[in-house]
Nucleic acid binder design. Structure first.
Length: 334
DNA sequence: GCCACCGGTGGC
DNA sequence: GCCACCGGTGGC
């Protein structure tokens, strides 16, 4: 995929992750390369779309697309973990002019567009970099047809430093959060917060010398378009009062309509949101995980939040636990 | 023991 | 209500 025109990007595009079950992607393929992108999209189960709320009215958005040409997400293929969570399956951005959605072929391109989207609004012409003939006259690549989860991404998030990867991992529906953001260092360490990044950089000054700064990291997560994807905190408080009743209220019982493109998870994992449900609603959504046991759950142990003083101690005393350096000892040379 | 996923808390 | 943070947990 060579780059030709470095097109203009839309202003305030919406970043969208989507679950991939739609036929429309292939319907709009217009070049061989795009065909390939579309196919890889279609093969990827449970993708998610993200789009930018601020711009949803005027229309800019991005859609997410999984690791290219991977038939299945990492969770399903290489991860020994049995839980299969919905994963970001496609990246899409909305044209600032015609408001149509254009699939972005790679996560890297998406991150590039997202970083500069405010300054350089995305247009269909931008996509000519990978789809030479695309224009606003072509139909939208994807639409909110109920077959995917759409989530709103934040604009102006810096691209991760070279050699680093920014991971957005979706949580299952009904949890307390929609997703988590992680950064994977060149040495393979996973960092979960700005504090951890800061500590890591202090422990590895070679990255600082190489120009890596905290401003290149953002742990902002996309927001699900489906309002009830994430459990409300007020619900949790209610549950503390009366668990059984609250559970009834919390879990919607909707007809399950399994997508033909859903990936097959472990049979014992039926309590996981591995399928999507076209429900005819305007916004796509994942199947809610069934309630495995509506009985009152055992009380959970309370955990005291570490004090600020403790947090500061952590910052002052870098953790020692870390994976042995693997491929990137060259960092020391920076 | 590791680690991906999840929940709970304080702060704003 | 949202966000940042990070400890807990269970499957491997």
């Amino acid at each position: 995929m060579q780059s030709q025109a470095q097109g203009m990007f839309p202003k305030d595009p919406a970043n969208t992750y989507l679950d991939e079950t739609s036929q429309e992607l292939k319907d709009h393929a217009s070049t061989d390369e795009h065909d390939e992108d579309v196919r890889s999209c279609q093969n990827a189960p449970n993708q998610i779309v993200v789009y930018d709320p601020e711009t949803s009215d005027t229309g800019q958005a991005l859609c997410v697309h999984p690791a290219e040409h991977e038939p299945l997400p990492k969770y399903a293929v290489s991860n020994q973990y049995t839980k299969i969570l919905p994963s970001i399956g496609a990246f899409t951005v909305q044209c600032a002019e015609c408001l149509k959605w254009r699939l972005i072929p790679t996560k890297e391109k998406y991150e590039e567009i997202r970083e500069y989207i405010k300054e350089e609004p995305f247009m269909c012409a931008t996509a000519r970099e990978w789809r030479p003939n695309i224009s606003c006259d072509d139909p939208t690549d994807i639409s909110q047809d109920g077959s995917r989860v759409w989530a709103i991404d934040k604009p102006s998030i810096a691209q991760p430093p070279t050699g680093w990867e920014r991971l957005v991992r979706l949580r299952s529906e009904g949890g307390t959060r929609f997703a988590d953001v992680y950064y994977i260092t060149p040495t393979g360490k996973t960092l979960r917060s700005t504090v951890e990044v800061e500590n890591y950089l202090l422990e590895h000054p070679e990255f600082i010398r190489a120009g890596v700064t905290l401003s290149q990291f953002s742990f902002q997560i996309p927001k699900p378009l489906q309002k009830d994807y994430v459990k409300r905190r007020s619900y949790k408080k209610a549950r503390q009062q009366d668990d059984a009743i609250a559970l009834e209220m919390l879990i919607p019982h909707e007809p399950a309509e399994v997508s033909p493109l859903s990936w097959a998870g472990p049979t014992q994992s039926t309590d996981l949101p591995i399928v999507t449900r076209p429900d005819g609603s305007s916004a796509p959504c994942f199947e809610a995980p069934p309630v495995s046991d509506p009985v009152v759950p055992p009380p959970k142990k309370k955990r005291a939040r570490p004090s600020k003083k403790y947090t500061k101690k952590l910052r002052d005393e870098p953790k020692v636990k870390e994976k042995p350096q693997q491929a990137w000892d060259g960092a020391n040379e920076l």
